[in-house]
């Protein structure tokens, strides 16, 4: 249980033109834990995460090589439908981007694609996931309102509910608290700690303290390379490389 690997990245390279964004990435991400990808901005953290659910397909100028195994399926070279792969991962981006529709429809969006159209079942599922994201009590009387009428913290939780609704087993979160106020950020962090029993969570951040608070496993990246990875305790108490030490001291940012 302790060592079960969910995602395994092997010699992943990614470049745009002559510019190398990711250089020979090898990491393994444990199942049902919070893995934090840490590093200063512009080090390729977000790009690494986008390649995990193949959003890199959107940018034809990006050249990707290497392998990413999720439950032993090589998702970069699979014959299966990309949308099926993406559905297994919920995505939270830096700023919440609610879809241009009502609160209810935002959560139902993924469910409807999956073909579940039974009205009653749909209602139940929407309620369930809004509750999971601790948003239900705040929005239950105005499910028909446009999602953009929510506060930014609420919007981020709506995006979480929306992501959970497609029944993923992985949550990808790209600096999900960077646009939020401290209290909303705390709520999101708390949510992650609750959810990690059932989900493999990957969190990209450049906030050291956030990483220290919630990480089980840490991947430290610098200039497109993985410098160090390991269980959080070891990483913070006993860093191996000079760059990591410097980063933990705060001299690189």
């Amino acid at each position: 249980m302790e060592n079960q690997t969910k995602i395994k990245v092997e010699s992943l390279n990614l470049s745009i033109g002559n510019k190398v964004i990711l250089n020979d990435i090898n990491i393994s991400i444990p199942k049902n834990k919070i893995t934090v990808i840490l590093g200063p901005s512009g080090c390729g953290k977000s790009t690494l995460m986008k390649s995990m659910n193949r959003l890199t397909d959107l940018y034809p100028e990006m050249k990707v090589s290497g392998n990413i195994f999720i439950d032993d399926e090589d998702i970069l070279h699979t014959k299966n439908d990309v949308t099926e792969i993406r559905k297994r991962m919920g995505l939270l981006s830096q700023r919440p981007y609610p879809l241009p529709m009502s609160i209810y429809k935002n959560v139902a969006y993924g469910l409807k694609i999956s073909g579940r159209v039974n009205k009653q079942l749909l209602n139940k599922r929407v309620e369930h996931y809004l509750q999971q994201a601790s948003l239900w009590n705040e929005v239950k009387d105005r499910l028909k309102d446009p999602a953009s009428s929510l506060s930014i913290g609420q919007q981020q939780r709506l995006c979480l509910a929306r992501g959970l609704a497609v029944d993923p087993d992985i949550i990808l979160a790209d600096e999900p608290t960077s646009a939020l106020d401290p209290i909303s950020s705390q709520e999101i962090e708390k949510k992650f700690l609750e959810l990690k029993g059932n989900y493999t969570i990957i969190l990209v951040t450049h906030i050291l303290r956030q990483a220290a608070r919630i990480a089980d496993y840490v991947v430290f990246m610098y200039l497109g390379e993985v410098i160090e990875q390991g269980p959080a305790k070891e990483f913070f108490s006993n860093p191996q490389t000079e760059i990591t030490k410097a980063y933990l001291r705060g001299s690189i940012n």
């Binding site: 439908d81 694609i113 999956s114 073909g115 579940r116």
Partner: peptide, 10 residues
Amino acid sequence: DSNKKTSFKK
């Protein structure tokens, strides 16, 4: 059943 529906919709 729901899988069938999904693939049909797809």
